[in-house]
Every structure is written in structure tokens, then in C-alpha cells.
Amino acid sequence: MTEIRHLLDPQDFSVEELEKLFSLAEKIIEGEEKFRNVCDGKILATLFYEPSTRTRFSFEAAMLRLGGRVIGFSEPGSSSVMKGESIPDTIRTVGSYVDIIAMRHPKEGAPRYASYYSPVPLINAGDGGHQHPTQTLTDLFTIRQTKGQFSNLTIGLCGDLKFGRTVHSLIKAMSRYENIKFILISPDELKVPDYIKTEILDRNSIEYLEVERLEEVIHYLDILYMTRVQKERFFNEADYIRLKDSYILDKEKLKLAKKDLAILHPLPRVNEISYEVDNDPRAKYFQQVKYGMYARMALILKLLGVM
């Protein structure tokens, strides 16, 4: 019997495995009709212990487009979890009904714990502030599709780089490719944690620059990954007022950027990207959402062993 494969951490897949996954996702985009029934008779369970409509819909749409079916809950209040059922019991039970599980949980490490008891492949669909590997797959696949490569890129990460788990995962993931440079754009209070700099960037001899203002560096960038800056993360009002406009991408700032820049955002956005940017061909964040679904389709196929 082959070992069950899960996706718990963005680093679970090697660069080679990721490439296979992304070429499959690309094949799906090129000929979706060929994949419409490949999961006929298969069931995905979406176990969402905290609401996340966006991620849940992406998983469910992915499975439905492959011809599979979906069961699950979108908040623990409507399930036996409220009666105090443990994760192992829930997973063993649900695992008896379905072929694959996508699990979101507010507690860090819950999907890893669940995977020890799961009789079927389990995907971490986000565990608190810890990991969100399918967001990383989404980001990587978007980079691949818009830039055609993973190497020789200058990537700007802008906004909250301290608490943003998607930013940390993306740095780790992109550090595995050649000739990558990072420009880290954030207020002092929201800089990338030291361990990312020492253990990932310095250890892999990756060039990086830390700046406070987007307009100073936007012309260098091949990719701009925007995140939300929340007022409550600042220590004082004065700093927030001084810096808040530096983290809003608008047409004026975009005038300084390269013609082939790709703008990404994990969404939802609040005001960090002006609506006027949406129609610019460099805005890729809605395409990113679609790429996320295709990446999840490919992931489901891989973990089920269908492809």
C-alpha cells in the first residue's frame, strides 16, 4: 500500500514536484473539458472550523469542476465539534465517508494533528496564523503563469510583512529558485521577522533590501505582492498617518513601474490597491484567484492519485 500523501506545509513539495503540479494545472486550463469527469464518484470534505468563504469556495469549485462531489461544514457551530468531539474522532469518521479532506482550523498545527489519524489525503486550508499552503501554491502558480519562470526575478513585498503568513511562505518558497532578489517594503513596526532574514535569506545568500516607501523602489520590481496594513498594528497614530499612503498602490505610483510588472494580492483587499488599478493589465490579483482554483484542481488530482 502506498503511503497517503498530505499537504500540510508549503515546503512539503519539492521544486520538481511543484513543477509537475503546475504543468498539470496548466493542462487543465488548456483543456478543461478533458478533466470534467476525472473525479467522478469521488468526494471532498471541506471541514472549516472557522469561516473562510473564499478558500472554501475555491476548493469546492475545484472538486465540482473535476466531476467530484463535496460535503462539509463551514463553521463548527453546525457540527459535532460543538458537542466536544476531538479532532481524531472527527477525522476518522469523515475519512470513512470521503476520498480527500480540506481542513481549515483556527488553531496552529491542527491539520498536522488531524493528518496522523486521517485514512485519506488531507490538505491544510489554513491553520490560524501558521500556514496556508494552497495560498502559496496559488501565488507560485500565478508567478509562473504571468512571468513564465521562477528565476531571475526581483520581488517586492509590500505592507504587513511581520504578521503576514502568506508573505513568509512566499519568501521561503521563492528562495528555492535561482537569482531571486527581494525588496521588503514596510513600516519599521511591520518588518519581516529576523528569523526569516537569518534562516532563509542570509542562509541562502539571497539579496534583499528593506525600505519604507514603495515609490522609491517600484521601478525595480518584476512582481509586487501587496498586503493589507492595518491601523491597529501601528504603535502610534502619527506613524500611521505618516506612512499609510506609502502602502497604497495607485495609478500615480504605477506610472513609475515596469511595463511588465505583475501585481499580486492574496485578497481580500481593503484600500491598499486603489480600484483605478484594477483595469491596468499589470493587475493580476483576480487572475490569481482563478489560478488558485486551477492549482487546487491539480492538487486534488495529485493527492488522489488520479493523475
Binding site: S86, I87, K107, E108, G109, R112, D127, G129, H130
Partner: peptide, 27 residues
């Protein structure tokens, strides 16, 4: 925020990540 703080029968497990400095991380 760790799952070990709420699950009843979970075993706390740490993995050695730096032998020289004696640093472990929660699994």
C-alpha cells in the same frame, strides 16, 4: 494558539532543530 492547547489527548512533541544551541520546535 497551538492545537495542543485545546485537544484533550494530544501528546506534546518537540523536534530538535539545532543540536549546538539546544533548540527544539513544536511539531
Amino acid at each position: 494558539r497551538c492545537i495542543t492547547s485545546t485537544e484533550r489527548s494530544i501528546i506534546h512533541r518537540f523536534i530538535l532543530i539545532d543540536k549546538d544551541k539546544g533548540i527544539y520546535k513544536c511539531e
